[in-house]
Amino acid sequence: MKRLDPFLMALICAIVLASVLPCRGEMQHILQQVVTVLITLMFFFQGAKLERHAIIESVRDWRLQGTVLLCTFALFPLLGIGLHLLFRNLFPNALFGEDLWAGILFLCCLPSTVQSSIALTSIARGNVPAAICAATVSNIAGIALTPLLTGIVLGHVGAGHSPLESVLDVAKELLLPFILGQILQKWIGPIVKRHKFLISFTDRGSIVVVVYTAFSSAVVEGIWHRVSPLHLLEVALLDSFMLALVLVASHFMGKGMNQSTENSIALQFCGSKKSLASGVPMASVIFPSASVGIIVLPLMIYHQIQLFTCTLLARHYGKRIGLETHSKPHS
């Protein structure tokens, strides 16, 4: 059984600390400024780290890459909207309130993960280069598509922002540092590659600080009076249901396009993931600080569910493909 990963444990500790000792007043304002700087640095290093040829290579298998984007930015949002309409209209008193529904819908608009999509595709003996390309393109496209889709799906974004305003805000705070990192890649890239652990620690540390700051604001606004343990369980069940539906749908999409087993695996894992690393910074840009804590709760729960479920699935695929390989007669 897969245990909680250290990163998720750090996020849980940040939530507990914010619940017991939330930052307030001037300290909260200072931390929000620190968060802005950390997020800018995180996307700058991402730009410096990403090789340009990976972006160019990603457009070769356009059917596979397009289907991953379709799952991530069309199937998920439509699924979220459908479930929201179903429960709000047929079962108006069921499940949680609109704040958590906003978090579910925001989750549906996020790009795929990078590290876990690649790692799980590798464990499953799928097409790893295709997974690298798909995850990369998804994250680059998400900088523009996530705030736009969030505005469309929610009907409003943040404190009265239009979808276009949200795209501009995300572009200013996330895309510009990323582009600057690409421009300076020749000089910064080798440093990033030599200090991978330090950069990874900086990235994850940034997200932990964002989560602590967001939940501090949410605690001050009374988040734990609005969200009960039962609500968290309901979110977990809904997250699990969405993940299961997309895993099944992406599996049959691969079969319908006559993709190879390796390509189908890459499609399934890249198309079903949602990025915590991109989602938390984007939420802090798109939504008011007091709303970020409750908005990212469904995403944090989904993050652990997707890791646990897809690790089991990847191991199953790896064993099955291994048996198929050994059963083939040698020439």
Results as ranks from 00 to 15, higher is better:
residue 234 E to D: 11
residue 224 W to Q: 06
residue 230 L to A: 07
residue 244 A to K: 01
residue 217 S to C: 14
residue 219 V to W: 00
residue 237 L to E: 08
residue 231 H to F: 05
residue 235 V to S: 09
residue 220 V to C: 00
residue 218 A to N: 02
residue 220 V to S: 07
residue 222 G to K: 00
residue 231 H to P: 03
residue 221 E to K: 13
residue 223 I to C: 00
residue 216 S to K: 09
residue 232 L to S: 08
residue 241 F to H: 07
residue 219 V to I: 05
residue 231 H to T: 12
residue 241 F to R: 02
residue 220 V to M: 01
residue 221 E to Y: 02
residue 248 V to R: 01
residue 218 A to Q: 02
residue 245 L to C: 15
residue 244 A to G: 08
residue 238 L to W: 06
residue 242 M to D: 02
residue 223 I to D: 03
residue 220 V to Q: 09
residue 246 V to H: 07
residue 239 D to I: 03
residue 247 L to H: 05
residue 218 A to R: 00
residue 236 A to P: 07
residue 246 V to W: 08
residue 220 V to H: 00
residue 229 P to I: 02
residue 234 E to G: 08
residue 239 D to H: 08
residue 235 V to Y: 11
residue 233 L to M: 06
residue 223 I to V: 15
residue 233 L to D: 04
residue 244 A to R: 01
residue 223 I to A: 04
residue 234 E to S: 07
residue 221 E to C: 06
residue 226 R to K: 13
residue 232 L to P: 00
residue 233 L to G: 10
residue 220 V to A: 13
residue 228 S to V: 03
residue 247 L to C: 10
residue 237 L to Y: 02
residue 215 F to C: 04
residue 247 L to P: 04
residue 225 H to T: 12
residue 217 S to Y: 04
residue 247 L to K: 13
residue 243 L to W: 13
residue 226 R to S: 08
residue 225 H to G: 13
residue 231 H to L: 08
residue 237 L to Q: 04
residue 225 H to A: 14
residue 230 L to C: 12
residue 231 H to K: 04
residue 242 M to K: 06
residue 237 L to V: 13
residue 231 H to N: 14
residue 219 V to A: 03
residue 245 L to W: 09
residue 240 S to G: 15
residue 228 S to T: 15
residue 218 A to H: 03
residue 224 W to C: 08
residue 231 H to Y: 12
residue 237 L to P: 06
residue 219 V to R: 02
residue 222 G to A: 11
residue 233 L to C: 09
residue 216 S to W: 02
residue 235 V to L: 13
residue 221 E to N: 11
residue 237 L to C: 14
residue 231 H to D: 15
residue 217 S to V: 00
residue 216 S to Y: 04
residue 245 L to R: 03
residue 226 R to C: 02
residue 232 L to V: 11
residue 240 S to P: 09
residue 222 G to M: 04
